[in-house]
Amino acid sequence: PKDQAKKEIEKALRNGDEEKAKRLAKKYGISDDDWKELKKRVS
């Protein structure tokens, strides 16, 4: 599910692991808009 994916990506971003977050986003098909939203929430 997308919500689970977003949680994992957000966690990776919080850990400062943007490479992992990007890989997860690609793997789960997270859209650019969702990606920006996640980045905003974390920063």
Rank of each mutant, 00 (worst) to 15 (best):
P1W: 13
P1D: 14
P1E: 12
P1H: 12
P1K: 12
P1F: 12
P1C: 06
K2A: 13
K2C: 07
K2W: 13
K2T: 14
K2D: 14
D3F: 10
D3H: 11
D3N: 09
D3Y: 09
D3S: 10
D3L: 10
D3V: 08
D3A: 11
Q4I: 11
Q4C: 09
Q4A: 12
Q4P: 07
Q4M: 11
Q4S: 10
Q4F: 13
A5D: 07
A5M: 11
A5Q: 14
A5H: 14
A5P: 07
A5K: 08
A5T: 05
A5R: 08
K6C: 08
K6H: 14
K6V: 15
K6M: 15
K6L: 15
K6Y: 15
K6G: 05
K6E: 13
K7G: 08
K7F: 10
K7T: 09
K7C: 09
K7I: 12
K7Q: 13
K7Y: 09
K7P: 03
K7V: 12
E8P: 01
E8H: 07
E8M: 11
E8I: 09
E8Y: 07
E8D: 08
E8C: 05
E8R: 08
E8T: 05
E8S: 06
I9D: 00
I9M: 03
I9L: 03
I9C: 03
I9H: 00
I9W: 01
I9R: 00
I9G: 00
I9A: 02
E10Y: 14
E10R: 04
E10Q: 04
E10G: 04
E10P: 00
E10N: 03
E10D: 03
E10T: 07
E10A: 07
E10S: 06
K11T: 14
K11A: 14
K11E: 13
K11V: 13
K11P: 00
K11I: 13
K11N: 13
K11Q: 14
A12W: 12
A12E: 06
A12P: 01
A12D: 02
A12G: 01
A12N: 03
A12T: 04
A12R: 02
A12I: 08
A12H: 10
A12C: 05
A12V: 07
L13M: 05
L13I: 04
L13A: 01
L13D: 00
L13H: 01
L13K: 00
L13Y: 02
L13W: 02
R14C: 06
R14L: 07
R14V: 05
R14N: 04
R14Q: 05
R14T: 05
R14S: 04
R14F: 05
R14D: 03
N15C: 06
N15A: 14
N15E: 14
N15P: 00
N15H: 09
N15K: 10
N15Q: 14
N15R: 11
G16K: 06
G16H: 07
G16Y: 04
G16L: 04
G16D: 05
G16T: 02
G16F: 05
G16R: 06
G16N: 08
G16P: 01
G16A: 04
D17Q: 11
D17M: 08
D17A: 05
D17V: 02
D17E: 13
D17F: 14
D17I: 02
D17N: 11
D17W: 14
D17L: 10
D17S: 04
D17G: 02
D17R: 06
E18L: 07
E18S: 05
E18Y: 07
E18M: 07
E18I: 08
E18H: 06
E18V: 07
E18N: 06
E18W: 08
E19M: 09
E19P: 08
E19K: 12
E19G: 08
E19S: 08
K20Y: 15
K20C: 07
K20D: 08
K20V: 09
K20N: 10
K20H: 14
K20P: 02
K20I: 08
K20W: 12
K20A: 12
K20E: 14
K20S: 11
K20L: 14
A21C: 00
A21L: 01
A21I: 01
A21M: 01
A21R: 00
A21P: 00
A21G: 04
K22E: 08
K22R: 12
K22T: 06
K22P: 00
K22Q: 10
K22F: 11
K22N: 05
K22A: 09
K22V: 11
K22S: 06
K22W: 15
R23V: 11
R23I: 12
R23C: 08
R23L: 13
R23K: 13
R23Q: 13
R23H: 11
R23N: 10
R23D: 12
R23A: 14
L24V: 04
L24K: 02
L24I: 07
L24R: 01
L24Y: 03
L24Q: 02
L24E: 02
L24G: 01
A25N: 01
A25T: 03
A25H: 02
A25G: 03
A25D: 00
A25F: 03
A25V: 08
A25R: 05
A25L: 03
A25Y: 03
K26N: 09
K26M: 12
K26G: 06
K26W: 08
K26Y: 09
K26P: 00
K26F: 09
K26I: 14
K26T: 11
K27S: 07
K27N: 07
K27M: 11
K27F: 13
K27R: 09
K27P: 01
K27Y: 14
K27L: 14
Y28E: 03
Y28P: 00
Y28W: 10
Y28F: 09
Y28A: 06
Y28D: 02
Y28H: 08
Y28Q: 02
Y28G: 02
Y28L: 06
Y28R: 01
Y28M: 04
Y28K: 02
Y28N: 04
G29F: 07
G29I: 03
G29L: 07
G29N: 11
G29V: 04
G29K: 09
G29H: 09
G29A: 09
G29Q: 11
G29M: 09
I30R: 00
I30V: 07
I30K: 00
I30L: 14
I30N: 00
I30W: 07
I30Q: 01
I30T: 02
I30P: 00
I30D: 00
I30E: 00
I30F: 08
I30H: 01
S31I: 03
S31L: 04
S31N: 07
S31K: 04
S31R: 03
S31W: 02
S31H: 04
S31G: 06
S31C: 03
S31E: 04
D32Y: 11
D32W: 13
D32L: 05
D32A: 09
D32P: 08
D32V: 08
D32I: 06
D32E: 13
D33K: 10
D33N: 09
D33S: 10
D33G: 07
D33C: 03
D33I: 06
D33R: 09
D33A: 13
D33L: 07
D34S: 03
D34T: 06
D34L: 05
D34W: 05
D34N: 03
D34H: 03
D34A: 06
W35L: 15
W35C: 01
W35A: 01
W35D: 00
W35E: 01
W35F: 15
W35P: 00
W35M: 12
W35V: 07
W35I: 06
W35Q: 02
W35S: 01
W35G: 00
K36Q: 14
K36G: 05
K36L: 15
K36V: 09
K36P: 01
K36M: 12
K36F: 11
K36E: 15
K36R: 11
K36T: 10
K36N: 14
K36A: 13
E37N: 04
E37V: 04
E37L: 05
E37H: 03
E37P: 01
E37K: 05
E37Y: 03
L38F: 03
L38H: 01
L38V: 05
L38Q: 01
L38Y: 03
L38P: 01
L38W: 04
L38R: 00
L38E: 01
L38M: 10
K39S: 05
K39Q: 09
K39L: 15
K39E: 09
K39G: 02
K39R: 07
K39F: 06
K39H: 06
K39D: 03
K40D: 15
K40H: 14
K40Y: 10
K40W: 11
K40S: 09
K40V: 06
K40M: 08
K40C: 09
R41D: 09
R41H: 15
R41G: 15
R41Q: 15
R41C: 08
R41W: 12
R41N: 15
R41F: 14
R41P: 05
R41L: 15
R41I: 15
R41A: 15
V42K: 02
V42E: 03
V42P: 04
V42I: 10
V42M: 06
V42W: 06
V42S: 04
V42N: 05
V42H: 07
V42T: 06
V42Q: 04
V42L: 09
S43N: 15
S43T: 10
S43G: 13
S43D: 15
S43A: 14
S43W: 15
S43M: 13
